[in-house]
Design a protein around this nucleic acid. Structure first.
Lengths: 210, 210
DNA sequence: AAAAGCAAGACGAATGTTCGTTTTCTGATA
DNA sequence: TATCAGAAAACGAACATTCGTCTTGCTTTT
């Protein structure tokens, strides 16, 4: 017989996780002490340890959330592709990442995760999955645009997708270290480098809106 | 009057720094304790603290070395450009980064630095300088290739350079997390996307080798 | 050339603090 | 009343750093 409702438990867990996210974004994983986390969450040590067995478990939960969000964002923009050029699609993804970073610091958290993945095998595996997911979406995107004659066929779509994944990751770094303007530049460059092809099949009526 | 020669002091400092690099690459900045560093260097605590006032100072020294090396690498390959296509130049830089990473883990260290720069303002400033340096080199490169008609003129060279910086950073991430094959793909894609233009001024005899 | 003096490198145990985690106990709820 | 979430205190371990002491080898003096 639980003493509290399941939704109360979920609320507590979210309370801990959102506090942890704030702490981690402020100080990083290792410079955040569990005491910092207790204070930020307004809870005692015992309460937090009732929901997470260790600090690493909190880190993993936060990191997984962040990676899930990034993948969902890319999947959404890259998949729901009307007749837009590759450059427009990439610029759109970048704009969305930038907006989300402003809202919840998704970029800074991504960098923390990259660094932590170097020493944490479980996290490294998840990060590889994330990159594989991005790679898959971008491969489809690249193949589509190759078929439309918008991209050269000289390299496999998989290779071009790797380049696009690198573009995303590097933009997140620049977004976090240099600010949003740098990322706007990347978007502008992408539009210029990969514009709509001059001659191509109509590719279904291009809806001009969003 | 020093008791030991200057080169002995330099040797000791290098001994500490190379031990620190090994420790940091193995465990990260914060999971490496000073005791770990003492053991790896084969020195006492007092000896290390004679050369560096604090752990942060060691971290800063290592990080600066790494950033200097990265910038030198890019500067070398991107500047000494004969008549190669942009794609070939980028693939060349990537290959060099990959080789250097295999030798001394420059990629992993870069990721540690990115993460640390989020909380360390001094390091963040240096990282911004590094990115600015890369951006400068790549801007010149992009402008050259725009002039040659190899790249569209629709975007300023500065914006294209931002994209190339992102490409580099993202490749370093993929190199470290996924391994060298991913980066080879990026190089191949760069060659395909930015080949030598079909018609252009001869641009000095193209050396077929390397 | 030999010996004495001395500045500075190196040592490593000890410091107080802070770490992540555990244990104990209380009070509210079903 | 029986149960358990949560608070609070406490745990040993590990942390970065300091400090008093020894050691070393150059400089000066004879």
């Amino acid at each position: 017989m639980p003493k509290v409702s399941q939704q109360h438990r979920n609320a507590r867990r979210d309370q801990i996780l959102s506090a942890a996210r704030r702490c981690f974004l402020r100080d990083g994983f290792h410079a955040t002490s569990m005491q910092d986390l207790f204070a930020e969450a307004g809870l005692s040590a015992g309460a937090v340890y009732r929901y997470f067995a260790s600090k690493d478990e909190v880190i993993l939960a936060i990191a997984e959330d962040n990676m899930r969000e990034v993948l969902a964002m890319i999947n959404e923009v890259a998949t729901a592709d009307p007749g837009r050029s590759l450059g427009e699609v990439m610029a759109g993804v970048l704009a969305q990442v930038q907006a989300k970073d402003e809202a919840d610091g998704v970029g800074g958290m991504a960098i923390l995760v990259w660094s932590e993945a170097l020493r944490n095998p479980a996290l490294a595996a998840r990060l590889q999955l994330l990159l594989a997911g991005m790679h898959k979406d971008f491969t489809r995107l690249a193949a589509d645009h190759q078929r439309a004659g918008e991209l050269p066929g000289g390299a496999p779509a998989e290779a071009i997708a790797r380049l696009l994944v690198a573009l995303m990751a590097g933009s997140i770094l620049q977004l976090t270290i240099l600010g949003p303007d740098a990322v706007s530049d990347v978007g502008a460059a992408a539009r210029a480098l990969w514009p709509r092809p001059a001659s191509s099949r109509p590719a279904a009526g291009a809806s001009p809106d969003r």
